[in-house]
Amino acid sequence: MADFDTLLAEGASVPVEGWDFAWFAGRATEERPPWGYAGRLADRYRTAAAALDVQTGGGEVVRWALRRAGTVPGVLAATESWAPNAALARRALAPYGGTVALVADEDPLPFADDTFDLVSSRHPVVTDWAQIARVLRPGGTYLAQHVGVGTAHEVTEALLGPTPVAQGRHPAAAAAAARAAGLLVTDLREATLRLEFFDVAAVVVFLRKVIWIVPGFTVAAHRERLRALHERIEAEGPFVAHTTRYLIECSKPHRDAIG
């Protein structure tokens, strides 16, 4: 195994734009949820006339699903809040006629009411249910995979020490918020999944990409905690953490079904 300083330098140098995790092959593994989100999205694309992907990252999941679907909705749009990711997404979706709007995660969606019959999102940072309900057409569907409570909390505590688990990502809370926005929840399921890191460089890249796990993470500020984690991996083998994911699917009622 490479020495600590070499691994830190490697982890600090890897580009972190987009949601392509190919670099982690042989360095880290994450168990996949059993419902196959990207395959479900591909199925929806086969019948969607107008589709929006919210907080799309680099557009990687949308591109994969479009290839799997073998067809493209007549209108294909996405939003992304980080300019480097938005640039990647534009390149990824341009061959499919897709457009990508640079929009802060907390800002209103820049689309007219009743525009899309499919809105999707994989691992959104925030979810504005009122905006989703607004841009969906009556009868339209929201399909998403969200990050759940306590995801990678073992990593958080390895870098920060004992830390309360943030409680804002419960599936039941999301379902209640969706219903409050006027949507019908048609599917809701959750999974706890195994996450393994085989070296400290993989931890560094993970924390640089997934910035909410350790807010304000830098290699310099967390060097000694990273050293302890490196020594633990060398002595005990892969560092094991867990993620939670939940699938949520909602529909917007037809107007004659409201009230």
Rank of each mutant, 00 (worst) to 15 (best):
A22L: 10
L41E: 06
T47F: 05
L76I: 09
E17W: 03
A49K: 08
A50F: 12
A65T: 06
R44W: 01
R32V: 09
L52E: 09
D43E: 14
A50C: 10
G36I: 02
G39K: 08
V61M: 15
A77W: 02
D53Y: 04
G70H: 08
L52F: 11
A25R: 09
L41D: 05
L76K: 12
G18T: 00
G58M: 01
R44P: 01
E10V: 04
D20Y: 11
E60Y: 14
R32C: 06
L52G: 11
P34L: 03
T6M: 07
E10C: 08
E31L: 07
V62H: 03
L52C: 14
G57N: 12
V72F: 04
W64C: 10
T47C: 03
L7Y: 02
V16P: 02
G39S: 11
R63K: 15
Y37C: 08
V54L: 13
P33S: 14
R40Y: 06
S13F: 08
E30C: 06
T71L: 07
A42W: 02
V61S: 14
P33F: 02
G11T: 13
A22R: 15
T47H: 05
P73L: 08
A9V: 01
A38Y: 08
V14Y: 10
V62M: 13
A48H: 05
A25I: 08
V72C: 13
Y37L: 13
W35Q: 05
A38D: 05
V54W: 05
R68W: 09
G70W: 04
G26Y: 03
T29Q: 13
